[in-house]
């Protein structure tokens, strides 16, 4: 048995990501933080669907008898992974454009919009 280990790892990943957003100043590091939160949530979803001793929900003709791992959370995770790539790419594109204008990726110096 693995017990609650995946869920503990999820909490660690999400907390680490949120801490990164507050504590790190480099814009690319902030995007890494978002990526960590995302992997935490994905791991949470997959662990939710896991049934001990279950079979993967991908067979057309499933072997009879064994319980099946829940398919819905896996579908959700697939969607979430794709959305995550889109947001990451968009944020990195903005970071590159900001660097081109300001010559820095330091959040303390990218403060034209204030007040």
């Amino acid at each position: 048995m693995i017990g609650n280990l995946p869920f503990v790892v999820c909490v660690i990943l999400v907390a680490l990501g949120l801490w990164t957003l507050v504590a790190k100043r480099n814009l690319i590091k902030l995007v890494i933080g978002i990526g960590l939160i995302e992997s935490g949530v994905n791991l949470f979803l997959v662990s939710l669907g896991y049934v001990h001793g279950g079979i993967p929900p991908i067979y057309t003709y499933a072997p009879s008898g064994a319980p099946m791992v829940l398919p819905t959370p896996q579908a959700l995770t697939l969607t979430s992974i794709v959305i995550g790539v889109a947001t990451t790419a968009l944020m990195l594109a903005f970071a590159v454009v900001i660097y081109r204008h300001k010559g820095t990726l330091d959040a303390r110096k990218i403060r034209d919009l204030r007040g």
Partner: peptide, 27 residues
Amino acid sequence: LLQAPDVAIAQAGVGAALTTAIFLLAI
């Protein structure tokens, strides 16, 4: 290992490889 092979493939291809490539491009 958590019996989600399809998600694992997506995560390896899209979540790990593609994301890393985009990050490398940005750096």
